[in-house]
């Protein structure tokens, strides 16, 4: 047990060092992606399977595809060897010393706080009955601290607007069709099970690991697969239904929070008899918005369309 943990921790540290010091940018990116997957594995060991799912899907998977795609778009040789600047050696040594000192203090601090009360966490577990879902994390995200999740949807929307302003699509006509390792027929075959498992993850969030973010990420992953194989491509025409779906989660979340005030007396509270259906509705709408936002962060275009064979 502990041996495996120690090995995982050691590998994480080695990969982090590799990611920072690797001579080639591609090696650094690959180290980062492997690190993300191992991190997900560690989180399974640390009783956080739903977070491991999110990290594997979003942190390592989607981000990995984005990183590699960006690397391909850089001029060859960029970021490989950097021209040394004066005092570089001593500056690096000072930075290294500072960071080692910080690491020691941080590790001691984390060790020191391994035991103690957690009033908010205890309260969350105690009030789980009233929250309308059995899964504690989902209850915190969508009920106890729903306001954070709502503002987070704002972050997603604003980064999407920022990305679309740059118009540097990762996936354009030249890249889409031929240079793919995954044939289109295979993608078509995989699509239904991936979509189903994404929807299942959203649904399962109420009582087991999963939820809007993990499900949304898997749905986005299905979209990215379609884009990579050329079945779906970004288009420069943005249309009203797509924009509506992008804000669906945030809008529904806010409106239910405001409109239910007369019934509950509090903003973002749910009446007892409606809490479960409302949470499921909000969860699905959030998942749709998240999936589309992540997908369009990937394509970098304001619209999506199917490629006609």
């Amino acid at each position: 047990m502990t041996l495996l943990d120690g090995l995982l921790a050691l590998l994480l540290l080695l990969l982090a060092g590799r990611c920072v010091t690797a001579a080639s940018l591609l090696q650094a990116i690959v180290a980062f992606i492997v690190l993300g997957l191992l991190l997900a594995l560690s989180w399974v060991r640390l009783e956080a399977p739903d977070l491991a799912l999110a990290e594997a899907a979003i942190g390592a998977g989607l981000l990995g595809v984005l990183l590699l795609g960006t690397w391909r778009r850089l001029p060859a040789g960029s970021g490989e060897q950097e021209t040394p600047w004066p005092w570089q050696g001593s500056a690096q040594a000072i930075a290294a010393l500072g960071c080692v000192a910080l690491a020691v203090v941080l590790a001691l601090a984390l060790h020191e706080t391994t035991l103690g009360p957690a009033a908010a966490g205890t309260a969350a577990l105690a009030q789980l009955e009233a929250a309308g879902v059995d899964q504690p994390v989902t209850a915190v995200l969508l009920n106890f601290r729903a306001y954070d999740t709502l503002l987070e949807m704002g972050v997603l929307l604003m980064t999407l607007i920022g990305t679309l302003m740059l118009r540097r699509p990762l996936q354009d006509g030249a890249l889409a069709a031929p240079a793919t390792p995954l044939p289109q027929s295979l993608a078509r075959l995989f699509l239904p099970p991936i979509l189903l498992s994404g929807l299942y993850l959203v649904w399962a969030g109420a009582y087991s690991p999963g939820g809007a973010f993990q499900g949304g990420a898997v749905l986005a992953g299905a979209g990215v697969m379609l884009a990579l194989t050329g079945l779906l491509r970004g288009s420069t025409r943005d249309d009203l239904p797509l924009r509506c779906l992008l804000v669906l989660g945030a809008a529904l979340f806010t409106l239910s929070g405001v409109l239910l005030i007369p019934l509950t007396g509090h903003f973002m509270a749910y009446p007892d008899d409606l809490v479960t259906p409302l949470m499921v509705l909000i969860e699905f709408s959030l998942a749709i918005s998240i999936a589309l936002s992540l997908m369009m962060l990937f394509t970098g275009t304001p619209g999506l369309c199917r490629t006609r064979p």
Partner: peptide, 9 residues
């Protein structure tokens, strides 16, 4: 905890 070391690292 080895993971505390890993986090700090």
């Amino acid at each position: 905890d080895p993971f505390a070391l890993a986090a700090a690292g």
